[in-house]
Amino acid sequence: MIVPNKVLLFFLPIFLLERLFIPLTSWSDSLMGGGIAFFLLFLIAFLSRGGLGEGDIKLYGLIGIVLGVKLVLLSLFLSILIGGTVSIGALLMKKAKVGVPIPFVPFIFIGTTAAYFHGNELIDWYVSTYFY
């Protein structure tokens, strides 16, 4: 249930190097992605009065640097969608209890992996299906 700062600091230079050699977007888009992701998760944590941890906020800031604005927003959407679906299912099957926190990081991992590898295809599919 804790994302240690040591882990985030370990991955920061790796992600920055990855960003140099495999750029998905421009540097400005990466910095905006990190800032927007950090701000959105901070806002969610503030409005939910601690329903989201500081580690999740910092992790999404780091992810935003790698993915950029468009893909980090998709990653956040997918993470919330998958996490919410699994959480509701766990509540209905009495595998979880209301008020007991469920770790968000596994859902962040799934949503981010999907956005990283298939994000542009998912966005193109959605736009072509619903806007053409």
Rank of each mutant, 00 (worst) to 15 (best):
L17H: 09
T25V: 15
F11M: 10
I22W: 11
I123F: 03
L73W: 14
P23C: 10
Y60D: 06
L43G: 12
F107P: 01
L52I: 03
F42L: 11
E121I: 15
A114T: 15
G55H: 08
I82S: 00
G34H: 07
D56M: 05
F77G: 07
G53L: 02
L8V: 09
F15V: 11
I82C: 01
Y116S: 03
G51M: 10
V69T: 12
P101F: 08
R19A: 10
F10C: 11
I80V: 05
Y130S: 08
L67C: 08
S75D: 02
L74V: 13
L71G: 02
I57H: 09
L12M: 13
K95V: 07
I108Q: 02
I88Q: 03
P106Q: 08
L17I: 15
I65Y: 10
P103H: 07
L12P: 00
F109P: 00
V7F: 15
T129S: 06
I123L: 04
F39P: 13
F107D: 00
L8I: 14
L9I: 14
L71T: 03
N5K: 14
F109H: 09
G61F: 12
V86C: 02
E18K: 09
G61T: 05
G53W: 05
I108Y: 00
V86T: 08
P101Y: 11
L59A: 07
